[in-house]
Amino acid sequence: MRSDASKLGFYLLLAPILLWLVVLIILPHVGLFVVSISEKVGPREYQTGLGNYATFFGEPLYWRTFARTAIMSILATALTLILGFPIAYYIAKLSRGRTKTTLFLMCMIPFWVSELVRTFGWMILLRETGVISTGLQNLGLISGPIELLYNDAAIMVGLVYTSILFMVVPLVTTLDSLDDSLIEAGYDLGGTTVSIMREIVIPHAMPGIVSGCIVVFMLSLGNYLTPILLGGKDSLWFTGMIYTQFITRFNWELGSALGFLLLGLSSAIVFLGLKLSKQSLSNTMGRA
């Protein structure tokens, strides 16, 4: 680091990362914010103001969709955690050797496949003429076709399916690092399964739980495909609104404001999650 040559090397290494972060991440977001606080007053004439944000709070459709997206994302995160934890525990603690590798890989494969394909699969399963409806009719459980698609439950199934891998993988990693002898010691000292889970396993798995929850929440909040394809015409999702403002309505000012609100919400939740669990971003995400 002292010689001129290595100093040059250092700056050569610094250049690409600065170029990447400044040009593609920082400046675009500053630009997005600037556009979000400009109001159109005439053709190609703008003035600075919070009008776009006022529109958001004044129009119930916008903030209700915002709240709905947030609540459904939280629900999807909670469901993913509840459904994924036993699976991660089974893979990390109750299976060995080849079974363990196979189960883990089986969890990973759907994650490599495009989200579009996964969503398409759910459409084939759930629609009125789909596999489940036809299957139930053949079994004689229902008399006519039923539509399982285009409702909030379908969105939830899709969201959980899309993001469960991001919950299971960090959980398996943290649970793997928990020594079995600690659990044995817990039983030796008279602990019950419930108390051992609460006092040994879950505290140990906390970093995995937090990073899983953060990733799943973000993926759900920013999801576009699943709500649009699995939800009905009335199942609004906030990313869909941003898309409409940008591409269909060409109202970039309002679209930017909506985008910034979504970014704000997702950052706030990430920050809150990290603070509550006393983790740092580098710790949680860096291990991904």
């Binding site: 991440i25 675009p28 977001h29 630009g31 997005l32 953060i214 973000m218 909040l221 920013g222 576009y224 990313t239 941003i242 898309y243 940008f246 679209g255 930017s256 985008g259 979504l262 970014l263 997702s266 950052s267 990430v270 971003l281 995400m285």
Partner: peptide, 10 residues
């Protein structure tokens, strides 16, 4: 931690 849609519009 930036949603993909936001990355795109920015």
């Amino acid at each position: 931690i930036i949603p993909g849609v936001i990355l795109g519009i920015s």
